[in-house]
């Protein structure tokens, strides 16, 4: 089946657009908007509204009709692995784990840079993505920077942590690899490795490296709090944690 946008008649191809051009408001600017619409492939392009935003910018509301159509039968959607959002994570915990979960995070070893762990854990979060502290179903403890691995484990036991997050920003001379390895070894020596979800994070830490080092996951640049939360709760559920 071939389809096209629908305005008020099947196949009319009507599209509504709004955009700004970096020119002063004038008849010439309106004409430029029409030409731009035509270049996009639209017919019957109409500027229905234009307004100056400043001496150098003009805002347009434009309608056009397109002759492009697509074959709906041939549309295939790729199944992407989708992370739960803030609400999804909390609901998932309520429905599947049925209690608050405890997440402990730190910048362990000698690393003094808390920007990564703060972005994931702090209430405020970053880029409008709330941090784990704001999740009603997560008890989040951010231990800060330069936490010795032994202390981190001790604290995780004390708080009955379900998951541990380790952030490593400094990667000079592979100091992060030594530190991350030491942590996992200590955790295994305590017999706790299988009881907790353990994740590493940092700008140079990918999932592949983290898995190699014995972590459940690694989170690199561009990770948001909900990505980490999502992974933790799904992993806990997969392991049958109640």
């Amino acid at each position: 089946m071939m389809i096209r946008p629908y305005g008020d008649t099947l196949n009319d191809g009507a599209v509504q657009m709004s955009f700004t051009l970096p020119v002063a408001h004038s008849a010439k600017a309106d004409e430029a908007a029409i030409i731009f619409g035509k270049k996009l492939g639209f017919k019957e392009v109409e500027v229905v509204h234009s307004n100056p935003l400043s001496d150098e910018f003009t805002f347009f509301v434009v309608y056009g009709k397109t002759e492009i159509s697509i074959d709906y039968d041939k549309v295939v959607v790729e199944e992407v692995e989708k992370s739960l959002d803030f609400y999804g994570v909390n609901n998932f915990i309520k429905e599947n784990i049925k209690r608050k979960i405890v997440v402990v995070g730190a910048c362990s070893g000698t690393d003094a840079h808390t920007v990564g762990i703060d972005a994931i854990m702090n209430m405020k979060g970053f880029d409008q993505h709330y941090g784990l502290e704001r999740y009603p179903m997560i008890e989040a403890f951010n231990l800060g920077a330069q936490v010795p691995n032994e202390d981190l484990i001790k604290k995780a036991i004390e708080l009955k942590a379900d998951a541990i997050l380790i952030s490593q920003i400094v990667t000079q001379k592979d100091v992060h690899i030594q530190n991350l390895t030491e942590f996992i070894e200590l955790l295994e020596a305590e017999g706790l490795r299988s009881k907790m979800v353990v994740c590493a994070g940092g700008p140079r830490i990918g999932n592949k490296l983290a898995l190699e080092l014995g972590y459940d996951a690694g989170f690199g640049r561009g990770t948001y709090p909900e990505n980490v939360a999502s992974f933790i709760v799904e992993k806990m559920h997969e392991r049958g944690v109640k």
Partner: peptide, 10 residues
């Protein structure tokens, strides 16, 4: 969605 476009402020 995003940090405001100039037109969004307008």
């Amino acid at each position: 969605i995003h940090t405001p476009f100039m037109q969004d402020r307008f």
